[in-house]
C-alpha cells in the first residue's frame, strides 16, 4: 500500500471529497448566474439609462415574486404598477424588500441595495406610471415644525397601532405595526403617503405636508426623551413598569421574607 492510497482510505477523506465537490459546484453556479444577470442588462426598452438600470435590478431582485413586468403574482406579491417611487424607496431603503422569504410581514433589516440602485429601481417603477415621488430632504425637514401639534395628530391617527411614542404593537395573524425608532424622516413621510402593508394611507390632502412634518418632529423628538430611572422598559407605557415593579418587587419581598424567617441553625433547645 503506497502512502497516497493510505491517505485516500482515511475516514476523513470521504468528507473532504464531498466538501470539495460542493465548493466547485457552488462556484460554478455563481459564475453562471453572474453571467446570466450581466446579459439581462443587454436589451432595453426604456429611454433613460437610470430606468434601464432599474429594470435590470428589478429583473434580478424583484421579478421572481412581482412578475416579469411588475404586474404582480396573485397570492404571492402585489402589482407594483402605480405604487410610485416613494413606495419603492420605503420598502427597499428599510431593507424590507427584496424579501428573504414570504412572511406575514417583512421585518426591517439593513438595505440590500445601494442608494443609487434604489434610485434607479424607483425610477423604473415610477416609469410604469403614477404614484407619489420620493420626497426631497427639504420636504421632510422637521426643523422648526410643531412637535406638540404633531403629538396631537399622532395620538389621534397613529398611536392606536404604533403606540404613543412609536414603540410599535401587534396586529393580527403575525402582522405588526413596527417600532418607529429607526425610521428616517423620509421613510416616515413615505410610509404615511403610501401606506405600506397593513398601514392606512394618509395622503397630502388629509394630513397636509406641514402636518406630516409636525408628526415627524414628534416621532424624532420623542426618541431623545430621557428615561427616568435609567431603563426604557420598551417604552410601551406604565404596563411594563407596573409588571416589572410587581414581579420584581414581589420576588424580592418573598426572598427577603424567606431570609428573615429562615431557621438555619439548630439550637440546644430543639
Amino acid at each position: 500500500m503506497t502512502p497516497m492510497t493510505a491517505r485516500r482510505r482515511r475516514p476523513a477523506a470521504g468528507y473532504a471529497v464531498v466538501l470539495l465537490g460542493l465548493l466547485i459546484a457552488g462556484a460554478g453556479y455563481a459564475a453562471i448566474t453572474e453571467a446570466g444577470s450581466a446579459s439581462a442588462t443587454g436589451p432595453n426598452i426604456a429611454a433613460s439609462a437610470q430606468v434601464s438600470q432599474g429594470r435590470a435590478i428589478f429583473l434580478e431582485e424583484c421579478a421572481t415574486c412581482h412578475g416579469q413586468f411588475a404586474q404582480g403574482v396573485p397570492g404571492v406579491a402585489p402589482s407594483l404598477i402605480g405604487v410610485g417611487a416613494a413606495a419603492v424607496d420605503f420598502q427597499v431603503s428599510t431593507g424590507r424588500m427584496p424579501a428573504k422569504e414570504p412572511a406575514a410581514q417583512q421585518p426591517r433589516k439593513s438595505p440590500q441595495l445601494t442608494p443609487p440602485q434604489i434610485k434607479a429601481l424607483a425610477a423604473y417603477i415610477a416609469s410604469l406610471g403614477g404614484g407619489p415621488p420620493v420626497p426631497t430632504s427639504g420636504q421632510v425637514n422637521a426643523h422648526g415644525a410643531n412637535a406638540g401639534f404633531g403629538q396631537q395628530l399622532f395620538t389621534a391617527d397613529c398611536a392606536q397601532c404604533h403606540n404613543f411614542d412609536g414603540a410599535g404593537g401587534a396586529l393580527t395573524y403575525g402582522k405588526y405595526a413596527p417600532p418607529l425608532t429607526k425610521a428616517t424622516p423620509t421613510q416616515i413621510w413615505e410610509a404615511m403617503l403610501t401606506g405600506p402593508e397593513a398601514m392606512p394611507v394618509f395622503n397630502n390632502t388629509t394630513i397636509t405636508p406641514q402636518q406630516k412634518r409636525d408628526i415627524i418632529a414628534y416621532i424624532t423628538q420623542t426618541r431623545s426623551e430621557p428615561n427616568p430611572g435609567g431603563f426604557s422598559l420598551g417604552r410601551v407605557g406604565p404596563v411594563t413598569e407596573g409588571l416589572v415593579a410587581f414581579l420584581g418587587l414581589l420576588l424580592f419581598m418573598v426572598l427577603a421574607a424567606m431570609w428573615i424567617t429562615a431557621k438555619h441553625r439548630k439550637t440546644p433547645n430543639e
Partner: peptide, 12 residues
C-alpha cells in the same frame, strides 16, 4: 371626498 381620495386611507 376628493381630498380623501386614496383607497386605504383612514382618518379620525
Amino acid at each position: 371626498p376628493a381630498d380623501f381620495s386614496s383607497p386605504g386611507g383612514m382618518i379620525t
